[in-house]
Nucleic acid binder design. Structure first.
Ligand code: MN
Ligand code: MN
Ligand code: ZN
Ligand code: ZN
Lengths: 144, 144
DNA sequence: GATGTAATTGAGAATCAATTACAATAATAC
DNA sequence: GTATTATTGTAATTGATTCTCAATTACATC
């Protein structure tokens, strides 16, 4: 399996885009984040490391990472986008606590089959799906 | 089954809120919309009927309708919220075309079972789920 | 290693959905 | 009717994201 930075560099070259320290700093930081993140968090983490990368550049870089399969958008329906490092990770769904925001991951194998079924029934070329389940974790149930 | 307006009026009374013509106009209009809608569309439709309800009031009323189970938020991940009339409708998921925005509905019965399973495994009290599938419809595939 | 080019950057302005402050109005309880 | 207090419309505000623009920089070519 190619290293992630290698995947990104090949993608950049293939598109006649440019390899910049900003983009690689951002990507490097994403590799070091365990779990989900948003633009603000990523920006703060870079700031903490004395990187001067601007938010605008982060916003501009993320679509590239997504396009080459290193990052995935995660929608927690809370008003802004979240992201996760996805290269080499299994596809999974999220169970989110409405109280404290905790996010657990689980796999739901049946959905591949559902995609095939929908493709056939409606004539769609399916690109993907998102399943999120929400509720209250044990701790937040007590607090209610 | 109680009528929807009745559900709303009981909810309003129970909370010591006030029954206003604006809220009932908005609700009435929602009943007449077939399918999904957003705030802007709802506002325009009310305008067309010479109603002077403001957008702010729509934004303030929707959470009430959601809270009493008449309306559901629908997340198409396109930058703003959509809604649908939900009272008496079966729960369903959405298949959306990334090209033209068409939305089809389908049922996926296995997810009730999944909720029970997750509740048990992680100790959550599950409140609901959202499944969206996206891809390209037959027409948009050709156009590519 | 200079040079031309076109992509990229940071700063700040613009956008857009959604929320909020405020003063005027109106629904309910008495 | 009167008092109370929720609700309204307007306009201002917020916050995430995108855009603009001038300055910088990566990369191909000489
Ligand atoms: Mn995840
Ligand atoms: Mn629907
Ligand atoms: Zn919790
Ligand atoms: Zn389409």
């Amino acid at each position: 399996m190619k290293s992630e930075i290698q995947v990104f560099r090949e993608y950049i070259r293939g598109r006649r885009l440019r390899r910049t320290p900003e983009r690689e700093q951002i990507l490097q930081e994403i590799f070091e984040i365990h779990g989900h993140f948003d633009v603000d968090e990523l920006h703060l983490r870079l700031r903490d490391k004395a990187s001067k990368v601007s938010k605008a550049s982060i916003y501009r870089a993320l679509p590239l990472f997504i396009d080459c399969g290193l990052v995935r958008e995660v929608d927690f329906s809370d008003g802004h986008w979240h992201y996760e490092h996805v290269y080499g990770h299994a596809h999974h769904s999220h169970l989110r606590c409405l109280g404290c925001g905790e996010v657990l991951e689980f796999e739901q194998p049946g959905l591949g089959c559902l995609e095939a079924h929908l493709a056939q029934e409606f004539g769609y070329r399916i690109k993907g799906h998102q399943l999120q389940v929400h509720g209250f974790c044990a701790t937040c149930q007590e607090a209610e």
